[in-house]
């Protein structure tokens, strides 16, 4: 009897795993294998042998600057997105604003966080481009020439401003439930114990929110780091950031060496993996108090 049971359990185990077989096949074919192909390709010479030459070839001024610009762009747009999104969500939840503001803000954030890519670039060109609404309005009404002042939408800061249009709403969407999770009792307990509002935020609320903030920051970073469409539609192929360089490489416009493309893509994977590892380590350390 007992033996019979054991044997049946042995037989059943693989059968149950069959239930996620379609999912497993899908993820191997369209997620894991393609990624592995990039990783292996980065270490292959054109004749198929192992080499570090591809990675070494990344070390040119142009590619180094592309990575640096991409990382800066992602860090700054994620940082500003987190800060501004947090301020707006906190304003709506704790700032004593009418309750009616909240639901429209969340709906709009849902729309705006998905309004990325090509049309977003068009919207900003129509607004802050050379003949955009604000540019023209500032020039005709106040005689302020944005261009003469050094502002150019088709630049690093132009890209940051444009990326914020989906970064801020994403932050609002993710941080609002987290802010709702701050219990009123915590604020009140801190207050009766003599804490000022600032002390409450520094010692209680922010540490509790830290994992969410960190996670959102990592997500926003990846979001900006991998974005192609917005930048491409805004500036065309000339802006020197990694995804655009890779895009051009895949299309066969530049570089020539196909294995350099692998290295370029591998570098992107490496950076997002490093970013997420930092995120996971920090999160584990900041979550000791969580179940």
């Amino acid at each position: 009897m007992a033996k019979d049971k054991v044997r049946r359990a042995e037989r059943r185990l693989p059968l149950e795993w069959l239930g996620i077989l379609p999912f497993a096949i899908f993820s191997v074919l369209f997620l894991i294998l393609p990624t592995m192909r990039i990783v292996t390709g980065a270490f292959q010479s054109p004749d198929g042998g192992f080499t570090l030459q591809n990675l070494a070839d990344l070390n040119t001024a142009s590619i180094r600057s592309a990575y640096w610009t991409s990382i800066k762009l992602s860090l700054i747009s994620a940082g500003l997105g987190c800060a501004i999104g947090f301020a707006m969500a906190a304003a709506v939840i704790f700032g004593g604003l009418p309750k009616g503001v909240r639901s429209p803000l969340l709906t709009f954030s849902g729309v705006a966080s998905n309004f990325a890519g090509v049309p977003l670039a068009f919207a900003f060109i129509a607004t802050l481009g050379p003949v955009g609404l604000i540019t023209v309005w500032l020039k005709t009404e106040f005689g302020i020439n944005l261009r003469a002042m050094g502002f150019n939408l088709l630049s690093f800061w132009g890209l940051v401003i444009t990326y914020l249009f989906f970064q801020i709403p994403l932050m609002i969407l993710i941080i609002t439930p987290a802010l709702d999770g701050l219990k009123r009792e915590w604020r009140e307990a801190a207050a009766v114990l003599g804490a000022t509002t600032a002390q409450y935020w520094r010692m209680v609320a922010l540490p509790i929110l830290f994992p969410s903030l960190l996670g959102t920051f990592a997500l926003l970073f990846a979001n900006a780091f991998g974005a192609v469409a917005t930048a491409f539609a805004l500036t065309g192929p000339q802006l020197n950031i990694v995804p655009i360089k890779l895009f051009a490489q895949i299309r066969g416009d530049v570089l020539g060496n196909p294995n350099l493309g692998y290295a370029l893509a591998f570098g992107m994977i490496l950076i997002t993996v490093v970013a997420n590892t930092i995120y996971i380590v920090l999160r584990v350390r900041s979550e000791r108090w969580l179940k």
Partner: peptide, 28 residues
């Protein structure tokens, strides 16, 4: 509230979850 020097106990869930027992007690 923070200028009254009053102690208060709530229904539940009022301990700061990110602080240890000792840090909770020492918060005030």
């Amino acid at each position: 509230a923070n200028a009254r020097n009053i102690g208060m106990m709530f229904q539940a869930y009022a301990l700061f979850p990110n602080l240890t027992v000792a840090d909770n007690v020492g918060f005030g």
